[in-house]
């Protein structure tokens, strides 16, 4: 009935420098700085540790002093050294799990949106089934069956991230797939994979980036929780989540052993959340108005 006449006024500021616009918001800048500092801290930390993180050096829950800057933990190991080296595992595992989950979820979402019909229905019902299993419970189940392994942990967390990612990406891709430039690519017979990579994926990068940020935080929290529950990184290796659980009984005597690792996990996730949420806001404000 209505032939809308898109107005030429949309021809102003091109959405080219999205990264720069995202970084103009102080909130996202703070988040990004926190995130980078925490990643650097975990990667470089082990090189600055004054002692071995597994060596027993003092009495359990010893107060700071005697060359131990923050005191000793439940087995008399140096808290500072354990904190400095306790983030490395968490960081690489979280990043690997996120990329695995995001890649798999994006692939499923885009294929479901593009293929439509029976393929879409099948994929999305599988995703629905996956969504009904809580990630942590699934991970505990598998780890108790096959024993703790870092690689399996990464795979399990990645699978846990997949269904949510798939749904979001399918939703983001559907309007793009109805656009004329995608129809045009079909009429000249470009292959489906090229259409998805060239025509669809570049148009959904904004939700993709924001979701990646959020999922990274979820994997950090998930992995730390698994370690806390004893299904993640195994002692005597050091890990923030594990430290909280090892030292929780001595909370009254040596609070630093619980408190500092908890703060480290919190800083990591808060920084990531600030950045992802701020970026989402900037994208929503600038891109939502154009469609």
């Amino acid at each position: 009935m209505i032939r809308t006449r898109p107005r030429e006024q949309g021809v102003q500021a091109p959405p080219r420098n999205l990264t720069r616009r995202i970084l103009t918001s102080p909130r996202t800048r703070l988040g990004l700085i926190m995130l980078l500092v925490m990643i650097l801290f975990s990667v470089l930390g082990p090189f600055f540790a004054p002692h071995s993180p597994t060596a027993v050096l003092a009495k359990p829950y010893a107060d700071p002093g005697d060359g131990l800057l923050l005191g000793a933990d439940s087995l008399g190991r140096d808290i500072l050294s354990r904190i400095l080296s306790g983030g490395a595992n968490l960081t690489w595992m979280a990043i690997a799990a996120t990329f695995g989950g995001v890649a798999l979820g994006t692939a499923i979402g885009l294929i479901a949106a593009y293929a439509g019909g029976i393929v879409d229905t099948l994929l999305m019902r599988v995703v629905d089934v996956m969504l009904t299993f809580p990630t942590i419970i699934m991970a505990i189940l598998f780890i108790s069956m096959v024993g703790p392994s870092r690689l399996i942990l990464v795979v399990l967390v990645a699978i846990g991230l997949t269904p949510g990612m798939a749904r979001v990406m399918r939703g983001a891709a559907r309007p793009v797939i109805r656009r004329e430039h995608v129809m045009w690519a079909r009429t000249i017979g470009l292959s489906s994979s090229r259409i998805l990579m060239r025509e669809v994926l570049p148009s959904v990068t904004s939700p993709l980036l924001v979701e990646t940020g959020l999922r990274l935080m979820w994997s950090v929290v998930g992995l730390a929780s698994l370690s806390f529950l004893g299904f993640g990184v195994q002692p005597p290796a050091s890990d923030w989540g594990l430290m909280v659980s090892e030292n929780k009984d001595g909370l009254a005597i040596q609070p630093l052993a619980v408190f500092i690792p908890a703060v480290c996990v919190a800083l990591f996730t808060i920084g990531g959340n600030l950045f992802a949420e701020g970026a989402a806001r900037v994208i929503g404000r600038t891109e939502g108005a154009r469609s």
């Binding site: 898109p6 949309g10 959405p15 656009r179 004329e180 430039h181 045009w184 060239r198 025509e199 570049p202 148009s203 990068t205």
Partner: peptide, 10 residues
Amino acid sequence: NPYGSLNPRE
């Protein structure tokens, strides 16, 4: 629609 027929990221 000239606003949808070209890939905006290309």
